[in-house]
Design a protein around this nucleic acid. Structure first.
Lengths: 158, 158
DNA sequence: GTTGAAAAGTGCTGCGA
DNA sequence: TCGCAGCACTTTTCAAC
């Protein structure tokens, strides 16, 4: 048996399992088995395969950040100085716990970050003291999210 | 028992439970109980309380999107026409399955979206046919993520 | 509100088809 | 390769503190 696209050892059944689990990771295997009309053992084998392949990287809780005191969500466009390396900046930004996402992007900015803070004071502290002080970062532009209208996973078309 | 601010019935123990579970939602309750030196029943009660309060909204699988054929991740700044209402646009954009996040933001744009696509062709289709055609959307600006350097949850300081 | 143990259900690992 | 059945474990419940 030969590999084709290196990743497409994934069939429809796998995708359907992922579809169900991506909406709610707490569904028991037996329930998945019933819905897809296969045995529980099969689900287990497929899940193990996908974990081994690194397709499933883990699972995490969906938390309402506002309800535990993190009220401010903001996006940050980051300009790097010419000559500064992206990798160095990433390593420094990794230590800033308030950054929950960081992307290397095309377009106006070098990098793009999403940060979650307790309040506007906390945000100011993070921007001024943590981020702007990172060597190589020239300028940042802040977009505060007033409302998160959509937050979901990719929907797999099986 | 009376409710106060509706949210601050959360104590340190609750936060510690969340901390552990946010890193890996598969940790069994018994393991959490051992680490925090309380009984399994207590964890269960606390979890139920936080679910009822809406703090825990569910759990979901962490998927490596690239490995299942979704190779392109992009951010989108969206300009709305004057007079167009945000709510109408949101309802239409909600139907675009490729949008995984949508925020109403301050700054240069009216809205900010994160989209996940299979490839650049798919991205073009989504931009041209799905998003630009939504009534009220004047212009969009696209930032393609070349690398997702950081992707994590908020770290709660308990 | 917390504890500890008992009951129910789930996940895992054989063997057989 | 898939499906079935037994064992270990987790989750859940409940009475007592």
């Amino acid at each position: 048996m030969e590999k084709k696209g290196a990743n497409l050892e994934i069939d429809n059944l796998d995708m359907q399992i992922l579809s169900l689990l991506m909406e709610d990771a707490t569904i028991p295997y037996t329930e998945i088995a019933k819905r897809l009309i296969v045995s529980g053992g099969t689900i287990h084998v497929r899940m193990k395969k996908m974990q081994d392949l690194g397709i499933i990287k883990g699972s995490n809780l969906l938390i309402d950040a506002q309800k535990i005191g993190y009220d401010v969500c903001a996006y940050l466009g980051i300009y790097l100085e010419k000559g500064s390396t992206y990798k160095d900046a990433v390593e420094k930004l990794r230590k800033v716990k308030e950054i929950v996402e960081l992307h290397y992007t095309t377009g106006a900015w070098s990098m793009f970050a999403k940060i979650i803070c307790r309040d506007t004071n906390h945000l100011r502290l993070v921007l001024n003291d943590y981020i702007q002080s990172v060597e190589g970062i020239q300028r940042t532009e802040t977009f505060i999210s007033l409302e998160e209208s959509i937050k979901r996973q990719i929907s797999l078309d099986t």
